[in-house]
Simulated assay, not measured.
Amino acid sequence: MSQQHPQPQPNQPHPQQPGWGGPQTPPGYGHPPFQPLPPKKSNTGKIIGFGCLGVVALLVVIGAIGVAVGGSSSNESSGSSDVTPAASAPKDDRNAAAGEPSDKAKTGEAKDDEAKVVTFKVWGTAPAGALGPLDITYGSDSDTRKGTFKNGKFEATLPLGDDALFYNVMAQLQGSGDIQCSVTVDGHTEKAHASGGYNICHAQANAGLLGWD
């Protein structure tokens, strides 16, 4: 007995099976597919960068400290080489350290002592005559004294007075001879000369506004 297969009816659509060609509905029931969120950025790079900068800064600080320490050490060593040993100090400095006056100070004191006196001198050849030996007088406007000529010279000193107007020395020959004379006041010297007969050698220093002349 033969089986009859049903014949398709006209104007009836053929049934469609899923996945057989026709349009398929996308997941999400008509909405666009789900987009995943972007991953969060990590701060690891920043931390590593800051760590590198810190290491560099630390190395710079250590280098600066090393340079400063080396410079101070070199300055100390160079400064120590300039120190003069106490044993090689000048004599005047050692005297000053010991509380004794230096040679320069002693020389200055000697000059001050010489400046405080007036020096009178007569020298040369002066034979004695009928009236006796060479006649010498010396002193200031307020003080006159007699001097003696011995062995071809005469020398005397007087204190320098603040109120003296002049200081002088006079030597008169006794018939013959050749002599010179001088007076020194405060470092200033006046000289004179006499020769033959009864001539007089007269040297005088006068007080002036600017010193002795």
Results as ranks from 00 to 15, higher is better:
residue 86 A to T: 15
residue 8 P to L: 14
residue 87 A to F: 04
residue 163 D to E: 08
residue 172 Q to H: 09
residue 55 V to T: 14
residue 162 D to G: 08
residue 11 N to R: 15
residue 208 G to A: 07
residue 151 N to Q: 13
residue 168 N to L: 05
residue 172 Q to K: 15
residue 145 R to P: 00
residue 69 V to N: 02
residue 66 G to V: 10
residue 180 Q to A: 03
residue 53 L to K: 13
residue 167 Y to F: 05
residue 162 D to W: 10
residue 49 G to V: 14
residue 95 N to G: 02
residue 174 Q to M: 09
residue 172 Q to E: 08
residue 36 P to I: 04
residue 207 A to K: 15
residue 45 G to R: 15
residue 164 A to E: 04
residue 88 S to D: 09
residue 53 L to Y: 10
residue 71 G to T: 15
residue 160 L to W: 05
residue 170 M to I: 11
residue 213 D to M: 02
residue 29 Y to I: 09
residue 39 P to K: 14
residue 169 V to A: 01
residue 39 P to S: 07
residue 73 S to C: 02
residue 143 D to K: 14
residue 152 G to E: 05
residue 33 P to N: 11
residue 116 K to V: 05
residue 65 I to D: 01
residue 158 L to C: 06
residue 170 M to G: 12
residue 135 D to F: 15
residue 140 S to W: 03
residue 138 Y to V: 13
residue 10 P to D: 02
residue 94 R to G: 08
residue 32 P to T: 11
residue 166 F to H: 09
residue 65 I to A: 11
residue 110 A to F: 06
residue 126 A to I: 06
residue 86 A to E: 03
residue 10 P to H: 12
residue 51 G to S: 08
residue 29 Y to L: 07
residue 70 G to L: 01
residue 18 P to H: 10
residue 58 L to D: 00
residue 176 S to V: 05
residue 107 T to A: 13
residue 156 A to W: 08
residue 160 L to E: 02
residue 158 L to Y: 09
residue 127 P to S: 01
residue 148 T to Y: 03
residue 149 F to M: 06
residue 189 T to Q: 05
residue 18 P to Y: 13
residue 80 S to M: 09
residue 146 K to A: 02
residue 81 S to G: 07
residue 134 L to T: 05
residue 55 V to D: 00
residue 202 H to F: 07
residue 72 S to R: 14
residue 116 K to W: 01
residue 7 Q to H: 11
residue 94 R to W: 06
residue 141 D to K: 07
residue 61 V to R: 08
residue 67 V to F: 04
residue 156 A to F: 07
residue 127 P to F: 05
residue 73 S to W: 08
residue 172 Q to G: 09
residue 28 G to T: 07
residue 93 D to L: 13
residue 119 T to Y: 06
residue 41 K to Y: 03
residue 119 T to E: 03
residue 54 G to D: 00
residue 195 S to Q: 12
residue 124 G to A: 01
residue 137 T to E: 00
residue 20 W to R: 15
residue 144 T to K: 13
residue 194 A to V: 05
residue 176 S to F: 02
residue 46 K to V: 13
residue 128 A to K: 12
residue 111 K to E: 00
residue 42 S to T: 14
residue 80 S to Y: 10
residue 127 P to N: 03
residue 24 Q to I: 05
residue 53 L to G: 05
residue 195 S to P: 00
residue 74 S to G: 09
residue 32 P to A: 04
residue 86 A to C: 08
residue 146 K to S: 09
residue 123 W to V: 10
residue 186 D to E: 03
residue 161 G to P: 02
residue 57 A to E: 00
residue 13 P to V: 07
residue 50 F to M: 11
residue 120 F to Y: 13
residue 68 A to L: 07
residue 149 F to R: 14
residue 107 T to R: 15
residue 175 G to M: 04
residue 3 Q to G: 11
residue 1 M to I: 15
residue 135 D to H: 14
residue 140 S to Q: 06
residue 52 C to L: 14
residue 83 V to L: 07
residue 139 G to T: 09
residue 169 V to Q: 01
residue 108 G to Q: 13
residue 100 E to W: 04
residue 153 K to D: 01
residue 138 Y to N: 03
residue 137 T to S: 10
residue 54 G to Y: 03
residue 125 T to I: 10
